[in-house]
Amino acid sequence: MPDGALPVLEVKGLKTTFKTRGGQVHAVNSVSFELRPGELLGVVGESGSGKSVTMMSLIGLLPSPPADVSGGQILFDGHDLRTASAETLREIRGARIGFIFQDPMTSLNPVFTVGFQLMEPLRKHMGMKKGQARKRAAELLELVGIPDAARRLKDYPHQFSGGMRQRVMIAIALACDPKVLIADEPTTALDVTIQAQILELVKDLREKLGMAIVWITHDLGVIAGIADRVMVMYGGQVVEQAPSRELFANPQHPYTRALLKTVPKVHGERDPKLNVIEGQPPILMSEPSACAFRDRCAHAFARCATENPQRVPVGTTGHDVACFWNPDTGSERDA
């Protein structure tokens, strides 16, 4: 992917908190990343790691209250989306930044036809007339590989299978030629054979349309197959970030390393024993003043309990990690 090009999306020090009955939850803590044109950035993490909340914060999809995107900058196309007006956001959302959600059944409206839902963004954002929008909608359905597209516009979501519904969601997200597509676990609810179809489709569309994609998932296998760069999140923070091959070949953070080991493989050697990350993910009731992973970490130092590690570069490949431990020496990382 083009290196050195100006990022299409740049996030700096993003913070999101939620007010709950139990107190304030710090779901996203100083997350920074950038997305270059045409790049596919994989975001991995467990539920509660803040990956979805980060992306929802970007385009103001979180209800406020309880959510509060309380700090940082989200630079897109000359705007800071965090402070942008609701109107600007509405113009950008769905038009220049597309979104695909995890569950295609709940994110499509069951009482409207697929055609109506597909034409809605075209008419709202692109100002198309009905006939024009219908034609474009059929083209889009065809683009995502739905046979007999023109006729199927009249069908309701329940008349489509899971994989087909997710294709419809992708078509809606692509409707206005977005520069950035954010896909939140788009294949998690699908079967592997259908997932393979969708992954092929996305690879193909990316080449055709050249948009940048953020792909959120917990499946390292999916990431390995499609991502250019991977960002690992834990406890509302980015703990490691690297080009895909580099990350899988040379993982630095104990969490990434453990995660890679807990997943059994279908191909190659079978591991007789599953490695386990003991313990539970952290509950983020306060702003982090220590490493969020230290309770589950096999390599924690005294320092990990008093200081929150910041991201430091590893080598020259654009790899960085937020950890005091150096896996190569087995001791503390030199600053």
């Binding site: 990431i223 197959g225 895909s244 091959r245 890679l260």
Partner: peptide, 13 residues
């Protein structure tokens, strides 16, 4: 079915 499962290793993937 087996071939559809992605492998967590970009080199083989």
């Amino acid at each position: 079915l087996l071939s559809a499962v992605p492998d967590p290793d970009p080199a083989t993937e």
